[in-house]
Design a protein around this nucleic acid. Structure first.
Lengths: 341, 341
DNA sequence: CCCGAATTTGAAAGCGCTTTGGGCTTGGGT
DNA sequence: ACCCAAGCCCAAAGCGCTTTCAAATTCGGG
C-alpha cells in the first residue's frame, strides 16, 4: 500500500493524505481522523527512500566500526554501546546503519557515506590520540559526535568522554593509601586516546607522592583476558613482584585474577587489583560489595548519551559544539586491601 | 555532485552517464572511459535513496536485535556475529541496518521494515523453540536467514546452526569417560532453541550409559559470569557436589572457575569443566593447550556465513531454502581430568 | 552511392514521497 | 447583497536515479 493507493482509496489527493499524516494544520480534523484511521487499518508506512529523497533527510545515522584484520578483534565495548545508542535512535524513529571497515579504509568509507547520502550523522568510536577522522568529518560538513576525545586534535568537535585521567588518578591514590608501592599498570593500546589519559592519571597520582612508575611493570596492549594472565604471571614471577595491579578492562582483570589464583594467592589479601569497569551487561561486577574494586562508567549509557547528542546536532546544527565529560566513580569491591608487609 | 551535474559537465545525457557507470553494453568504450574517469575525479557516488527508489532495491539488510528491558542484557555473541556479517556485507556493497527492539515489539518492527522498504532481507537472531518471527517473515515474503533453528517451526526456512546436540553429547561422553558421574549442567535460557538442544545432547549421552540427570544439578539462566559463580558455589557446598561442570558459555565458565578456585580447588584436577566456546575475539580460549576444554564454534564465522546465505537468497530467490549445520569440535584444554576418587 | 542494420546517444516517464502555489467553499463583516 | 479572509483541498513539480522508447549516427554490402 502506497500513498497513491491510499489516497485513491479515500477519494482524496496525495497532498491531503500526506499532510494529514504529517500533522500539517491545513487539513480539517475530520479528514485527518479519517485518513489516519485508514492508514492504520491498511498498515500504511511511507517508503523511507522516497520520503528521504523528497525531504533530503535520511532518518538514519551511521556507526563506522573499525576492524583490524591483524587480530580480528571486536571491541567488547561495542555491543553495549550500540545497544544504548540504538535504543535512543529507535525512540526517535531513526535507523542505525553500521559499517565494518578495515582500519585503513575509514576515510574512503566516510566520504562514501557522505556522497551516497546514506546518513544524517555519524558517531566516531575509539579515537586515537591524533585522529584524522575528525578533521575529515569536519571538512565533509556532516554532523558527528566522538565517543572519547583525540588529545592532539585542535579544532572543535562534539564529544562525550569519561574522565579517564581523574578516574585512574584516584584509583592509584587509593592503592597508595593502602600502602602499595609496587603497582603494575596494565593499560590498553596507548595509541588510543583513553589509554593515554589513563596513563597520565596513573603517573600523576604517583608523582604527587614523589614516586615514579616502574617501566617493567607497565604494559600496553589490546585488552584481552590472555594479556592480563600472561602479564600478571610474568610480573609475579619476576623480581620485585607488584603488590597491586591497576587494569584497564574487566576482561583483562579476569586474566590477572586467573594468574593470581594460580599462584595460590588471594585477590584483596595478597594482591590488590583495581580495574576499569565499563559495566557491560554480560559481565557485571555488581552486588552490594562487587568483586572487583573498580572505576565504573556505563558504556551503554554513554551510547545513549552520544546518540542523543547526535540527534540534537542533526535537528539543530549549532556553532558551539556540545561536549560532555562523565565521571567514573570508584566503587569499592573485594579485590583491594592493605599492602601485605 | 549528482548525476545531472556530472552529465552536464561531460556534455552528455544522464542516460548515457548512468549506463556508462553501470556497465551497460550500449555505450562506446571511449565515452565509458571518459565518464568513469570524470566520476572518479569528482568523487561521484550515486545517491543511495534515489537509486533505491528507481530500482526497487535497497542494498541494505537488517538485523533486529532483541533487547529485553528486564535485564538490559546484550548478548555477548552480538559483537562478533555482527562483525562477521558486516564484513561480508561490506564486500558486496550492502549496508547493514540495526534495530534494537524490545522483546515484545518485534512483529511490529518487522512489519514496518517491510512496509517502509528499508531492507532487502533480514537476519533473525536467537530463535526460541517456537518462534513467531519465522512465520511472520514468511508471510511478509521477505528473504531472511535464521541464525539457529526453531524446533517447533514446521514450515521451511533458511537457517544456519551449530550442531548443539552432538557437541554437548560428545562433551558429556568425554566427562563420563573420565569417570565423572555427578555432572552439573549450567545451561542458557531454555526458551532458546540452542539451549534446548544442548540439554537434549546432555541427556542423550547420559541415557546412553543408562544414567539420568540430577535435577538439582541442572540450571537454566542467562549466561552471565555471576550465574556461573553463584550456581557452582551453591552446588559445591551442597550435598553430593558435582565433580564436573558442563557449561553453555565461556563467560559463565569464568564464573564457575572463580567459585572453584575460591574453594581452593583446581580446575582439571579437583573439578572438571567443559564449556561451549563461541570463539569470541575478546575472550580467546586459545593456545596450543587452551585453558578450557570446550566445544568450539566461531560465531564470527557464523555471521559471515549467514550473511552470505542471505545475499545469495536476495540475488536469486529459490524454492529450496538453504540450510547449514556446523559441527562444534571438542578441543581439549586443561580444565578436564579424571574424576578424583 | 544508397539502404538497412548495427551502434550510440537522448528525451522523458516513473519510482513514492513532500511541498509550492493556487482554487474552491464558507462565513462573517459592512 | 457583496467582499475578503479563512479553511480545505488539489494539481503538479521536484528529489536523483534507472529504463523504455525513439532518434541520430555510423558502417558494410550490394
Amino acid at each position: 500500500m502506497n500513498l497513491k493507493e491510499l489516497a485513491a482509496h479515500l477519494g482524496l489527493s496525495q497532498t491531503t493524505v500526506s499532510r494529514a499524516l504529517n500533522g500539517y494544520p491545513e487539513v480539517s480534523e475530520a479528514t485527518r481522523l479519517r485518513v489516519s484511521h485508514a492508514a492504520e487499518q491498511h498498515n500504511y508506512r511511507p517508503n523511507t527512500r522516497a520520503k528521504g529523497l523528497a525531504t533530503g533527510r535520511t532518518m538514519a545515522v551511521g556507526h563506522v566500526i573499525p576492524t583490524s584484520t591483524r587480530h580480528e578483534m571486536v571491541n567488547p565495548i561495542f555491543g553495549d554501546f550500540i545497544s544504548g545508542a540504538g535504543e535512543t535512535y529507535a525512540r526517535h524513529g531513526f535507523d542505525m546503519v553500521l559499517s565494518m571497515v578495515e582500519d585503513g579504509h575509514q576515510p574512503r568509507v566516510y566520504r562514501e557515506l557522505k556522497a551516497k547520502g546514506t546518513v544524517d550523522g555519524l558517531i566516531v568510536q575509539g579515537p586515537g590520540v591524533s585522529d584524522p577522522r575528525i578533521g575529515l568529518l569536519r571538512d565533509l560538513d556532516i554532523p558527528f559526535v566522538v565517543h572519547g576525545r583525540a588529545s592532539e586534535e585542535t579544532r572543535e568537535y562534539a564529544w562525550l568522554d569519561v574522565n579517564n585521567t581523574s578516574a585512574f588518578a584516584s584509583a592509584t591514590a587509593l592503592l597508595l593509601d593502602l600502602g602499595h608501592r609496587r603497582i603494575a599498570f596494565l593499560n590498553g593500546l596507548e595509541a588510543m586516546d583513553f589509554a593515554r589519559r589513563r596513563r597520565a592519571g596513573f603517573e600523576m597520582a604517583l608523582a604527587q607522592r614523589g614516586l615514579g612508575p616502574n617501566p617493567r611493570h607497565m604494559r600496553s596492549a589490546e585488552m584481552t583476558e590472555g594479556y592480563g594472565y600472561a602479564s600478571a604471571r610474568e610480573m609475579l614471577l619476576g623480581a620485585d613482584p607488584p603488590t597491586a595491579f591497576l587494569v584497564s578492562s574487566l576482561i583483562t582483570a579476569l586474566g590477572v585474577r586467573r594468574a593470581v589464583e594460580e599462584f595460590g594467592m588471594t585477590l584483596g589479601r595478597d594482591v590488590s587489583l583495581i580495574t576499569h569497569d565499563d559495566d557491560l551487561s554480560y559481565l557485571r561486577n555488581a552486588g552490594e560489595v562487587p568483586y572487583f574494586t573498580a572505576t565504573r562508567s556505563s558504556v551503554r549509557e554513554a551510547g545513549m548519551l552520544c546518540a542523543q547528542m547526535l540527534l540534537d546536532l542533526i535537528h539543530a546544527p549549532r556553532e558551539a559544539l556540545p561536549t560532555r565529560l562523565l565521571e567514573a566513580p570508584l566503587v569499592l569491591g573485594r579485590s583491594t586491601g592493605p599492602c601485605p608487609t
